[in-house]
Design a binder for these strands. Structure first.
Lengths: 151, 151
DNA sequence: CCAATTCATAGGTGCAAACCCATTATTGGT
DNA sequence: ACCAATAATGGGTTTGCACCTATGAATTGG
C-alpha cells in the first residue's frame, strides 16, 4: 500500500542516492554514539594512512574548506586524538599528527563502520559484495578523478 | 598528492555514501534548472504510477511528513502539474491528480535524470550497469522493507 | 627589504532537509 | 448529538553542511 514508484526504482541513480543516504545516516548515527562525525574519521584515516599533514594539505586531500579543518582538529585535539605542532621549517604551517590514542579510536570507528556495513549489505553474499565494491570503486574513481590512486 | 585514504576506500558503505551523494547532487542540480526539487519528481512519479492519491497516502508512500507534502503540492499545483479536489466521499481528504502537463513535465524530468545517469555510470558497460542496478535494488528492498513490491 | 602571498584561525552566513505543533474542518462511533 | 480521531494546512524550529570573509603571523619573490 506504500510501495515506491517503479519509475524511480528504475533509475540507478535514484537507488544510489537513496541507499547511499541511508548508509551515510546509519554510519553517522553510530559514530554519534562516540561523539564523532564523519569528518573526524576521515581526518584520522588520512593521518593514519599518509602520515602527518600540514592543515592545508589535509583540506586539499579531503576536499574540505580549510576553516572547517580547523574546527575538526580543535575537537580531535581536545580528545587527544591528534597533536598540532608548528612546522619549524615554515612557521606558518601547523603539522598535524595522529596520536596512539587516535589510532585506537580510529580502529574502534572502523569496527563500528564495519558493523553498520554488515547490516546494510546483509542480503548480499561475499562474491556479490566484492562485485558491488568493485563497481562502486570504479564509479568513485570516475566521479572524483585524482582522488584515487590508479594502479 | 591528494588521494583519498585507502582505509575509507575499503569501506563499501563509504563508497556508497560518497557516490550516492554526488549522484543526488547532480540530479538535484539538473532539476534545479527547471525549478524542481527531487520531491516534486517523486510526487509526480507516484501519481503517474499509482494514480490519484489522498495527500495523506502520498505522505505515507513517500515516507515524508504530511505538512511537507502540502508545500510540495502548492508548488506543483501552481505550475499546473497536479490538481487538488475535495474527496466527495470524505470531505476532509483532498485527492491529488496529475495533469497532462504534469505527465509531460515528468517525462522531461526523467529524461534529465537519465542524462545524469549516463554521466555517472559512464565507466560501466551495459552488463555491469544491470548488475549494479540489481544489487542496489536488493539493498534498497532490504533497507526500506515494505516499500518495494516483491515479485 | 618591501609587497604580495600563504597559512591558520575565528566568526558568521545561507540553505535545504527533516521535524514538530496548533488550528480548522470533517468524520465515525456510540 | 457528542466526542475522539483523522485530514489538511500554516507556521515555526532545528540541524547539519558547505561556504565566505577578515585578521594576524610568517614567508617568499623580485
Amino acid at each position: 500500500m506504500h510501495e515506491t514508484p517503479p519509475s524511480l526504482l528504475a533509475l540507478t541513480t535514484y537507488l544510489l542516492s537513496r541507499v547511499g543516504k541511508t548508509a551515510r545516516t546509519r554510519i553517522t548515527e553510530r559514530l554519534a554514539a562516540r561523539d564523532v562525525r564523519l569528518w573526524h574519521m576521515a581526518v584520522l584515516a588520512a593521518l593514519a594512512d599518509f602520515g602527518p599533514h600540514a592543515q592545508r594539505d589535509l583540506a586539499a586531500r579531503l576536499t574540505i574548506d580549510p576553516s572547517d579543518v580547523v574546527k575538526i582538529l580543535d575537537e580531535l585535539a581536545a580528545a587527544g586524538h591528534v597533536e598540532r605542532a608548528r612546522d619549524p621549517a615554515d612557521r606558518r604551517r601547523v603539522v598535524v599528527t595522529i596520536t596512539s590514542a587516535g589510532r585506537t579510536a580510529l580502529a574502534d570507528l572502523t569496527t563500528d563502520a564495519s558493523a553498520v556495513q554488515e547490516d546494510v549489505l546483509a542480503p548480499l553474499d561475499e562474491e556479490e559484495r566484492a562485485r558491488l565494491h568493485d563497481l562502486l570503486l570504479r564509479l568513485f574513481a570516475h566521479l572524483h578523478e585524482g582522488t584515487v590512486r590508479e594502479r
